[in-house]
Write a protein that binds this DNA or RNA. Structure first.
Lengths: 138, 138
DNA sequence: TAGCTATATACCTATTAAGGTATATTGTTT
DNA sequence: AAACAATATACCTTAATAGGTATATAGCTA
């Protein structure tokens, strides 16, 4: 549905490119974008809204968090451009560092939480996992 | 030199996409863009300037005409994105029609010109051909 | 030189978007 | 219910861009 022009319009902002590059690795929530990209919450939120309005991302709420992800079924156009994007940034330091940070954040364990908190978190993760929106919070 | 964001910014306008799609087939001058795209001269001129400012096209003057073409040496980024563009529009009616029109215009012969005019034109074409800016005018 | 053709530029208007501050909303926890 | 955490929205300011009209420029022709 989203036409080529709109896709390019979404791609012509650095923050949005970084967001999409991260989403190519998996779902992520707003606060993680914040810490990875180092941008204020409102900036992230507005860019995500922009991407969502143009159908480049989807979101689903999980407790207090809203998880963003690439659309489950993508148009051929979007697929091609995301593949091209991935190819274009693969040697770019900033984009690689973003992905590195992401893997650190999403692999964080529940150590340090109280048992109750840990159970809650793990249950959340399991539920999220089944909804294909797996992610982690401290 | 042109970064990815800038390339996407150039690509997020329909007229510019159509211009680039045509240039993928070969050099073309402003007035031909006008007749193929059906846009006023000033619009074409401004979009070409935009593309040139961002190093997505080059130009060279040939008599009264200014011929635009893709850069002789393109960055890897630009190459990838132009290839992706070509792939993305190959099933789009408008872009195909543009190319069809282009081939009609650029294959136009010198029939109907006075001998002197024809010689002049042909010399121009030869000169242009050697400068890799071959195109045709009535 | 004067007129002509092709192209470019100046200027104006309207729209869009980015970035910021403050506030609202939604869901959770106690 | 109240406080809290994560996210979203309203509103403002500034900048960029598209589109249009009018005019300028560059090169050719007679």
């Amino acid at each position: 549905m989203t036409d080529l022009i709109t896709i390019y319009a979404c791609l012509c902002d650095k923050t949005r490119l970084r967001i999409l590059n991260l989403l190519l690795k998996g779902p992520l929530c707003v606060c993680h974008f914040q810490s990875i990209l180092g941008k204020p919450q409102v900036a992230i939120s507005k860019h995500l809204k922009y991407l969502k309005n143009h159908a480049l991302v989807e979101s689903s709420r999980n407790a207090n968090w809203v998880i963003y992800m690439l659309p489950k079924k993508q148009s051929a156009l979007l697929e091609k451009n995301l593949a091209c994007l991935q190819d274009c940034v693969k040697e770019d330091g900033q984009f690689s560092k973003d992905v590195q940070k992401m893997s650190i954040i999403t692999s964080r364990s529940t150590c340090g939480l109280s048992p109750k908190q840990a159970v809650t978190k793990i249950n959340q993760r399991l539920a999220a996992y089944e909804k294909n929106t797996y992610f982690m919070h401290r």
